[in-house]
């Protein structure tokens, strides 16, 4: 897992990406900074609470990043609803047959 400082920066970066410029006023911004300050490494002593906090922060970063990527891909490929028959045919390189007499000639 990446070092705490990088995780902290990563989380703040993700918060900015999802909330825009006002992210510094958000609850999460202050909470995250607060937590990272409290958990600063003071020595090489093994500390379970610290390790758990690190794992959690890493998990949170993963949640934010994955959600952003997922939403981007969703928007790109699934966000516009179902494609029309013409578009679907076009995707696989086919074209729909045209009706000789125009639409409705069969009546």
């Amino acid at each position: 897992m990446s070092p705490p400082l990088r995780v902290c920066r990563g989380i703040l970066k993700e918060l900015r990406a999802s909330m825009g410029q006002s992210y510094r006023q958000s609850l999460a911004y202050n909470y995250v900074l607060d937590q990272f300050r409290k958990n600063k490494v003071t020595g090489d002593r093994y500390c379970r609470a610290q390790q758990e906090a690190h794992h959690d922060s890493h998990t949170y970063l993963c949640l934010l990043t994955a959600t952003r990527h997922h939403l981007a891909l969703h928007q790109l490929y699934h966000g516009k609803g179902e494609r029309s028959i013409e578009q679907a045919a076009d995707m696989v390189g086919l074209r729909l047959p045209t009706q000789p007499g125009g639409k409705g000639w069969e009546k």
């Binding site: 959690d56 949170y60 993963c62 949640l63 994955a66 997922h70 891909l73 490929y77």
Partner: peptide
């Protein structure tokens, strides 16, 4: 294939991360 494999991976990561965080944040030890 981006629209299948990457899509699934990111979704699975997001869901899993949310689940783990939820367990940790709502358990007594935390």
């Amino acid at each position: 294939v981006e629209w299948a494999h990457d899509y699934d991976t990111y979704e699975l990561r997001a869901r899993t991360a949310a689940g783990v965080l939820f367990v940790h944040l709502s358990s007594e030890s935390s």
